[in-house]
Amino acid sequence: MRGDKCVEVVLPGKVEPEGLELRSVPVPVPSAGQVVVGMEATGVSFAEQQMRRGRYYDQPAFPFVPGYDLVGTVLAAGPGIGSELVGKRVAALTKTGGWASHVVLDAADVVGVPDGVGAAEAETAVVNGITAWQMLHRKAKVRSGATVLVHGANGGVGSVLVQLAIAAGAKVIGTASARHHEGLRALGVIPVDYRNENVPARVRELAPGGVDAVFDHIGGRSVHDSWGLLARGGTLVSYGSAATRDDEGSGSLPVFKLLGRVWLWNWLPNCRSAYFYNVWAGRAYAKDRFRARLRADLTQVFAALDRGDLTARIAAEIPLARAAEAMRLAESGTVAGKVVLVP
């Protein structure tokens, strides 16, 4: 097995990025039904930014190894797993544990990566890709000719979402700061400057009859505005509370507020619908179904990446040992795409 030590990044508590700790531990040994994956790329997502503040709504107790997803090569397989999986490049959704050189996973949770897709490129499409695909196709069910609004169109999820929506034949309006507008226009997105424009007013100019779907990761006031921008029969998909990232207090409260609003809006007779999207929904009570759906959808995302419908948006590739630098960069709001950690 590659190396005799596993290097991992530990989040010891509520710390600044520089408080992340690097430690060396024995390489894990797979049990029955498991594999050990040698990490080739893992990412810095909004979840880790919330976790270091103690504000991710179901994060584990400190200390723990963060890392929401990863791509790597299977180095060893436990009893019951065929040897043909060893040497294959795979991806996995982990929630935690991905920021390590070696990660032990249930073999049923890994998804093959096409030969033509590199590790860092695939990494940009794991949690971001599955989130975007399922919100677009399973929740909003966007079809050709629809008009959609994507908040944070330059971000990790947003940059994948706008490309998948365009590939589906939708007209896309995307909010971002002005520095990202040229890149968004190149993708076919109509950009709106959320810093210097009245977003609801501008979107109404672009879509007087309302939009067919809004994808909102901001929460707070934004989710109310998003609901008001929907056309008859439109769908709001809320999937985060970025507006509360730096708040103090409970990390669960903003999520519960969003869930309450979604419930209320769906209860009212208004010819519109709302969802709060959670990538882990269903895993606790229907694990096999969850795994089958994730495998099918992530395979679709990788296929889009392989044929060019989706272009990997890599903001930077930074060594795992410099995770603090990567976290700072991801939190800066100055980059487009995903910050990727590599061995």
Score class of each variant (00 low, 15 high):
residue 256 F to T: 15
residue 245 R to K: 13
residue 245 R to S: 10
residue 234 G to L: 07
residue 230 L to M: 09
residue 234 G to M: 14
residue 262 V to P: 01
residue 208 P to I: 15
residue 254 P to T: 09
residue 237 V to P: 00
residue 235 T to W: 00
residue 225 D to Y: 04
residue 260 G to D: 13
residue 239 Y to A: 09
residue 217 H to P: 15
residue 208 P to V: 12
residue 257 K to T: 05
residue 266 N to K: 12
residue 257 K to M: 13
residue 235 T to Y: 04
residue 264 L to G: 10
residue 214 V to L: 07
residue 250 S to P: 01
residue 219 G to H: 00
residue 210 G to V: 10
residue 250 S to Y: 02
residue 265 W to K: 12
residue 259 L to A: 09
residue 213 A to L: 08
residue 237 V to I: 11
residue 216 D to N: 10
residue 245 R to Y: 07
residue 253 L to C: 00
residue 219 G to D: 02
residue 215 F to W: 09
residue 238 S to C: 11
residue 226 S to C: 11
residue 242 A to R: 05
residue 248 E to Y: 04
residue 246 D to I: 01
residue 254 P to L: 07
residue 251 G to T: 08
residue 258 L to K: 00
residue 266 N to L: 08
residue 236 L to C: 01
residue 231 A to I: 09
residue 236 L to Y: 03
residue 250 S to H: 07
residue 234 G to K: 07
residue 252 S to H: 08
residue 238 S to F: 01
residue 221 R to N: 14
residue 204 R to V: 09
residue 259 L to G: 08
residue 209 G to F: 08
residue 266 N to C: 10
residue 249 G to D: 08
residue 205 E to H: 14
residue 217 H to G: 15
residue 236 L to M: 04
residue 245 R to H: 05
residue 232 R to T: 15
residue 209 G to W: 09
residue 216 D to R: 01
residue 238 S to V: 14
residue 249 G to F: 07
residue 240 G to P: 02
residue 204 R to I: 11
residue 220 G to E: 10
residue 232 R to I: 10
residue 230 L to S: 06
residue 248 E to H: 03
residue 222 S to F: 02
residue 206 L to N: 13
residue 221 R to I: 11
residue 226 S to R: 11
residue 255 V to T: 06
residue 232 R to E: 15
residue 261 R to L: 15
residue 227 W to E: 13
residue 208 P to Y: 12
residue 266 N to P: 12
residue 208 P to L: 07
residue 266 N to A: 14
residue 264 L to E: 13
residue 228 G to E: 12
residue 263 W to H: 15
residue 257 K to N: 03
residue 213 A to D: 11
residue 264 L to R: 13
residue 211 V to K: 04
residue 220 G to P: 02
residue 212 D to T: 04
residue 230 L to G: 07
residue 212 D to S: 06
residue 235 T to R: 04
residue 216 D to P: 01
residue 243 A to D: 12
residue 215 F to K: 05
residue 246 D to H: 12
residue 265 W to E: 11
residue 223 V to D: 02
residue 235 T to N: 08
residue 248 E to R: 05
residue 258 L to V: 03
residue 231 A to H: 06
residue 248 E to S: 14
